[in-house]
Amino acid sequence: MEDLTPEDISQILNTSKLMKGISERDVKKAPTLRGKTIINMFAEPSTRTRTSFEIAGKRLSADVINISTSGSSMSKGESLKDMVANLEAMRPDLIVVRHKSDGAPAMISRWTNCTVVNAGDGRHEHPTQSLLDMMTILESKRKLEGLNVVIFGDIKNSRVARSNMIGMKKMGMNITVCGPKTMLPLYVEEMADNVTTSLADAVVGADVIMALRIQTERLEKAKFPNAREYSRLFGLTLSHLKKAKHNAIVLHPGPINQGIEISPEVVEGQWSVVLDQVTNGVAVRMATLYLLLGAGLQKTE
């Protein structure tokens, strides 16, 4: 999201709205990207993002190929650079990259002439997630500017938090981040409008509440005593929602650890837009692929 201007973001969100229409049709297919080849290169486990990108590409009639760690040379000791060179030799038009290393998509875009889309890199960014989050908020609130959004959980290690802090700031949203002190990076106050370690304080007057997944796979050592204490201090419950605006919505990038960062009643309630996020994910990715391939824009995001 760092490289996008507010105008870029608006353009993608407007295009996404149009793309969503294709997914609502009986015949969910448009010929826009016919003859284009997209490689989904997923060097980190992912179900929803990979599927979302795959469906997005196929709905636009592109040929989509998936490569993942288990079924590729990434596990055979070949370097990433060599692998990219080999993929490029097969003349794809676009490579979607999910990687556990921060910056891998940026590096790959330097090593190849084809367009690269970041589908989440390490702790760095997850731009299409941020875009789908904003699309979902926009659908519900009809605007982004001036809304109070609370992002809570592992701010330090979350690429979703990072992309949203950058993207939502560009769109004029008022951002509050909340999490245990061990999960807030240094200088976090420069990245958000408000910073607090109290979820009860954070949610007061909120329009949008975004829970983050506690990513056990990214935690080298315990940043909190145990899941029970974490859920008591930083788990979103119905009582929190009473302090937020009456029409507040709750987002979660998934997969959800129910009962840890968010209680089951909150996930099931009318304020939850978690499944809208998944639906909109396809639309945002269709828009991204369309704008980069169909409309001839060449850039990495």
Binding site: D102, G103, G122, R123, P185, L186, Y187, V188, E220
Partner: peptide, 19 residues
């Protein structure tokens, strides 16, 4: 320090790298 890549600071915040 853990398994770091660069200095902990604004740049590590920007890039997501462990500082």
């Amino acid at each position: 320090c853990g398994k770091w890549s660069i200095n902990e600071g604004r740049t590590s915040n920007r890039l997501g790298l462990v500082g």
